[in-house]
Design a protein around this nucleic acid. Structure first.
Length: 871
DNA sequence: GAGCACTGC
């Protein structure tokens, strides 16, 4: 009680506040320089080559599971129906949410002058809504359209040709290529046609609209077999499309500080360029060549590949660095890393002094980290003329990158791609999961051999589709050739198969031998509402860029075909050119804190390739201020500098640091680790739901979900991290191992920021107070009818049914996250006492806000608090 | 009475 009183009375004098600020900044800088010293002393360990067998074993296991499933499962029709209904319901809810969002925006900001960006956002939302509604309408007409006989050739021509094209390069190319020849399956092969009529009850009409040209001419296609014979590393290297450009490339890099490299996947740029640079003396004076990748697997496998080509052990001259794994040594000259890792490295080496070249690879993917790196490296390049920058991108974005980097020259490298024929449906397909099933069978029955890759939006859909396909295949029986259906991914000999995947297959997963791609045109996308602070996962139409990326997957090994389950008109007019970059869609709390720690104070004017919404930046800054990471001038505080060391959201970082004061850092680090594995702790197989739920209830402890998570971890630890313990208790071992990794890292970082790791308290109040110190933004109180209202925004929310507190309904709760699915749910909920809020965040909560008329105890407490603060 | 696309530190 007296603690916050003291703090608030100190605010009264400006001088003392100014003094406090100066003292804090001084301490902050001293802390930062201590960190730097530590980093300099740190000797890098010599790496051990990572084992790669585990991946193969995993794939083999998965395959086996699939086969067993296929043989034995008989799927009741009812279940399929219920799933589809669920999907339908969810879609309705999402549409309603979007609608409400638009009304909200217009109501709240109707009178306010909107910026261009905000206007565009609103327009975009409206457009989404319109598409979603039309999609609904089309569904009602489904039967009529699905079974319609194909029209005569001339009839639909004008439908596809008359439209005015958008001005993009892509669109122009499309227009040129556009032809409306009607393509029908089986037309070329009478025998197949006959068989197909016999087998399939329904069909989809596709229209071939254009061809995505490959980089290879037909004659080159013939050479494929010869290429495969290449045995020596040198021969393989020389066969890569980038090889003839070696000298030109090196010359260009010597002449220009920044170079944009445009090249398709498969050109060899990722593996070869660092080697060319190494051979040409760019590593003199012990400097490093760095190359960032958006994904961990890519960083690891590319590094392994290059080490092999150079004949060195991985971790010596060639190494990689990803979270939890630093496979580099003092000998390392070529270093592959994830973009997030480089982002972190900036904290200890803001000028990248140890690098002579930095390659930002796969820049077109526009991950949050790459986007921030753009601004940072551009800035560094100005005062480090010796640093070479290569920005490597696979798409037409190259011009945009060039403009951003002061018109840096673009160096083009050809790719290795075969042509892909693109087909569109003639009519809109309402139920695309069903359309996928029909298309797969059509292709399988009538097209030449080749694997089929299907893009779906998520696990639920993949399961539905998997079951439908299996059922249909079984019904058709032996009339159909064997069809192997693999959900997600596999690594198999080239039999005929269908791969059902999410957009993981767009980039990060290489599946050999794909000839056919089926693209329904949707993906799930995470969106962050900066006004309510709520995230939602919605099924949205993909962008043209993404559609072309998907089509490209068909042309990796031979000429391919891509079947789009939408019309050519929809492609032209309904799809955005590019996916909205991540930086404009997500919560930027952590990113803003890191930038502040790098000394970038004016974030609003930071050089972003595409700036995030102003509102999102403001929210992030406000939150950091409330957490004490920034002072009233917006400068980073010592607390903020310490928070920035943790690779977690600012609220969680604050929670971790607060645990020092409450003497429970051990417990809180565990809770943080468990929270960051993202809801995948409890395993809930569909056929054992009752057992799984019972097992879960056994972990319940008073207080709430955070403490349940702690309990789970502690019991697992007590079992000596036993895998069987996990099976028995319906806990996912994989997630637990990850939680252990995260915990170890967090504990290491806690020591790094000079915290003591302490534990041993028997009651939970201190643990819950630490959590509250970080998450005082996320508070809700019980109101009438079992609903909760959030403390600051008065938003109606509910406890998620999976929570341990679902039936308890405490008066005050803290939640880890707010998600919109069927309702606004709080996930990971813990009971707190409102007076704690005054203790941990006196600047944010005033006693009056915490008054509670429904409870007799609370007014007494509040009354005391008020007396204290006014006396 | 529920449903987490995909990355990453």
């Amino acid at each position: 009680m007296s603690r916050y009183r003291r703090e608030s009375s100190e605010d009264s004098s400006y001088d003392s506040e100014e003094e406090r600020r100066k003292k804090d900044i001084k301490e902050r800088d001293e802390f930062a320089s201590r960190l730097k010293e530590k980093d300099e002393k740190k000797t890098k360990r010599v790496a051990v080559a990572a084992e790669s067998a585990s991946g193969k074993a995993e794939a083999a296991k998965r395959l086996k599971l699939v086969e067993e499933d296929t043989k034995e499962k008989i799927i009741p029709k009812l279940r399929i129906e219920s799933r589809r209904k669920y999907l339908e319901k969810r879609k309705e809810d999402k549409v309603a949410e979007l609608e409400a969002d638009i009304i909200d925006d217009e109501y709240l900001f109707g009178d306010v002058e909107l910026t261009e960006k905000e206007k565009r956002d609103l327009e975009h939302k409206k457009e989404l809504l319109r598409i979603a509604k039309e999609h609904e309408k089309a569904r009602e007409l489904e039967n009529i359209q699905r079974y319609r006989m194909p029209l005569e050739k001339g009839v639909e021509e004008d439908q596809y040709q008359e439209r005015e094209q958008p001005q993009s390069e892509q669109a122009k190319w499309e227009t040129e290529q556009m032809s409306s020849a009607v393509y029908k399956f089986g037309a070329k092969d009478r025998k197949a046609q006959k068989e197909y009529e016999l087998l399939l009850e329904d069909e989809i009409d596709f229209i071939q609209s254009l061809q995505m040209p490959g980089d290879k001419k037909d004659e080159v296609v013939q050479k494929k077999a010869e290429e495969k014979k290449l045995t020596t590393i040198e021969e393989t290297q020389k066969s890569l499309p980038i090889y003839p450009f070696k000298k030109d490339l090196i010359d260009a890099i010597r002449t220009h500080q920044i170079l944009i490299i445009k090249g398709e996947t498969g050109s060899g740029k990722t593996t070869q360029i660092p080697q060319y640079l190494y051979q040409n003396g760019f590593c003199d004076n012990d400097k490093l060549i760095g190359c960032t990748q958006p994904r961990r697997v890519a960083a690891m496998s590319v590094a392994a590949r290059v080490a092999h080509e150079m004949g060195v052990k991985l971790g010596n001259e060639v190494g990689y660095a990803i979270r939890f794994e630093d496979c580099t040594s003092h000998r390392t000259r070529i270093k592959y890393m994830t973009d997030g890792t480089l982002h972190r490295e900036f904290l200890s080496e803001p000028d990248l002094a140890s690098y002579s070249v930095m390659i930002i690879d796969e820049a077109h993917e526009r991950t949050l980290h790459t986007d921030i790196l753009f601004g940072l490296v551009k800035d560094i390049a100005r005062f480090r003329p010796d640093l070479k920058l290569l920005i490597s991108s696979a798409t037409l974005d190259a011009t945009k990158f060039s403009e951003f980097f002061d018109n840096a020259p673009i160096f083009q490298v050809p790719g290795r791609r075969y042509p892909v024929d693109i087909f569109y449906t003639k009519a809109p397909e309402a139920d695309y999961v069903d359309a996928v099933v029909v298309s797969v069978l059509q292709i399988h029955a009538t097209q030449p051999d080749g694997d089929i890759l299907v893009f779906l939006t998520g696990q639920e859909e993949i399961e539905t589709c998997f079951e439908m396909l299996n059922e249909r295949v079984r019904r058709l029986g032996s009339k159909l050739r064997e069809l192997l259906i693999l959900p997600v991914y596999a690594n198999l000999p080239s039999d005929m198969k269908v791969v059902l995947a999410t957009n993981i297959a767009e980039t990060s997963l290489t599946i050999d031998n794909i000839i056919y791609v089926i693209d329904p045109g949707f993906a799930k996308q995470n969106n962050f509402n900066s006004r309510t602070g709520m995230e939602s996962l919605m099924v949205v139409p993909i962008s043209k860029a993404s559609a072309n990326q998907r089509a490209g997957r068909a042309g990796r090994v031979a000429p391919g075909k891509c079947f789009r389950l939408y019309t050519a008109w929809a492609y032209q007019h309904e799809l955005e050119e590019n996916t909205v970059p991540e930086i404009q869609r997500i919560n930027l709390g952590n990113a803003v804190l890191t930038l502040k720690a790098l000394g970038i104070n004016d974030l609003v004017h930071f050089d972003f390739l595409d700036p995030p919404p102003h509102q999102t930046l403001v929210l992030a800054l406000e939150q950091l201020y409330a957490l004490g990471a920034l002072n009233h001038r917006g400068e980073l505080t010592k607390l903020g500098r310490r928070m920035a060391e943790f690779p977690v959201d600012p609220m969680m970082a604050k929670m971790l640091l607060a645990s020092e004061k409450y003497k429970c850092s051990e417990e809180v680090s565990t809770i943080a680790a468990m929270l960051s594995v993202n809801g995948s702790i409890f395993y809930r197989p569909k056929d054992k739901i009752i057992h799984a739920d019972a097992a879960r209830k056994n972990f319940n402890v008073p207080g709430g979900d955070h403490l349940v998570l702690l309990n789970v971890y502690n019991q697992w630890q007590a079992s000596d991290y036993n895998i069987h313990w996990c099976y028995e208790n319906f806990i996912q071992h994989k997630s637990m191992k990850r939680a252990r990794d995260v915990k170890d890292q967090l504990v290491g970082l806690m020591q790094r920021v000079e915290m003591d790791i302490v534990s041993g308290i028997t009651e939970t109040v201190n643990i819950r107070k630490s959590i509250t110190a970080g998450y005082f933004y996320h508070i809700a109180r019980l109101s009438k009818g079992g609903h909760y209202k959030t403390a600051k925004h008065n938003q109606t929310v509910q406890i998620h049914p999976s929570s341990a507190l679902f039936e308890e309904l405490p008066r005050w709760v803290l939640y880890h996250e707010l998600v919109f699915t069927t309702k606004e749910f709080m996930r990971q909920v813990t009971e707190i006492e409102s007076k704690w809020l005054l203790e941990v965040a006196p600047h944010y909560y005033k006693p009056k806000e915490l008054e509670d008329s429904t409870n007799k105890k609370v007014p007494k407490v509040v009354g005391r608090a008020q007396k204290d603060s006014t006396s």
